[in-house]
């Protein structure tokens, strides 16, 4: 240790430290770097990128095709890259992507609290609203990357393994030209993103409310599980339409020969509704919260 002798940075006209501006605190780039080098971030992306290849290998090993008579999505997976990507998305959207999104959004504030670094960020000072905003943007960005990277890698893996063919529609076996489907595929990924917003925002709210990152992630995943169970109860009738996960598979409608977007529109509506409220609660809560961790 030695003694610091430099003069202080001094204050500006307002009486704040020189060069300090609330709007410049916690730049997105800094938050991205802070999160990126975490093991769980890297492990999650490695898993998402590897999964399509694992599926490809699994399909190679499996018993030969059943003659192409079956028209289920899983049996059509080997019909081409697009079919494979649709299959990969359908099998992962219900749980793997949920976990990924819950991880990125549920961990972000709670882990800072558990490391005690949150109080130093707040005392830097980063205004609380800004801290939440920047963290939310970065967490959603990582979530979006996770949801996007899987179908894209599946498209690549599927195309390399099974070739670039037009898509065969499950159920009727109709063929749609690949060039027609590609823009729809972008729409599907976009919808998958929006439908994960509920998970993201709930995880974020829990992240703000607890010091335990696992609690926040688990809570959000738990919600998805409970909602999926409830939506299987047909006695609930149209109540189910308002369950956050009810419309999660509506994107399949976009890939049919006569795309029907009404389910997706409802899904977006429900998803946005829940997310906006949950995120508003997160901000409201964090603003006045006593940070004691």
């Amino acid at each position: 240790m030695s003694v610091p002798v430099s003069p202080a940075a001094g204050e500006d006209a307002l009486g704040y430290a020189r060069g300090y501006a609330p709007g410049r605190t916690l730049p997105l780039r800094v938050e991205i770097v802070r999160q990126f080098r975490r093991r769980r971030t890297l492990a999650m992306f490695a898993l998402l990128l590897a999964l399509p290849w694992v599926l490809v290998v699994a399909f190679q090993f499996g018993p030969g095709s059943n003659g192409g008579n079956s028209l289920r999505l899983s049996d059509l997976a080997t019909a081409g890259g697009l079919n494979f990507a649709a299959f990969a998305l359908s099998v992962s959207a219900s749980f793997l992507l949920v976990v990924a999104v819950a991880l990125f959004c549920g961990d972000t504030v709670a882990s800072e609290a558990s490391w005690s670094s949150l109080r130093y960020l707040l005392a830097a000072p980063i205004p609380r609203d800004r801290l939440l905003r920047q963290k939310l943007i970065v967490a959603l960005g990582y979530s979006a990357a996770a949801v996007t990277v899987l179908p894209l890698m599946a498209l690549l893996a599927g195309t390399l393994a099974f070739g670039w063919h037009d898509i065969r529609v499950p159920g009727t076996g109709e063929i749609i030209a690949a060039t027609d489907v590609l823009p729809k595929f972008a729409l599907v990924i976009g919808y998958a993103l929006v439908s994960q917003l509920v998970v993201a925002s709930l995880a974020f709210l829990l992240s703000v409310s607890t010091d335990s990152p696992l609690g926040a992630v688990g809570g959000a995943v738990g919600l998805v599980i409970v909602s999926s169970i409830l939506q299987a109860v047909e006695a609930l009738g149209s109540f189910r339409e308002f369950l956050p996960t009810f419309w999660n598979t509506a994107w399949l409608d976009a890939l049919s020969p006569q795309p029907d977007y009404s389910g997706m529109i409802k899904g977006v509506s429900v998803s946005v509704t829940y997310s906006v409220i949950l995120i508003a609660f997160a901000f409201r809560r964090f603003r006045r919260k006593d940070v004691v961790s």
Partner: peptide
């Protein structure tokens, strides 16, 4: 919370 003057505080 988040008062800008905290920028002159090290903690």
């Amino acid at each position: 919370p988040g008062a800008p003057v905290l920028s002159r505080l090290g903690s």
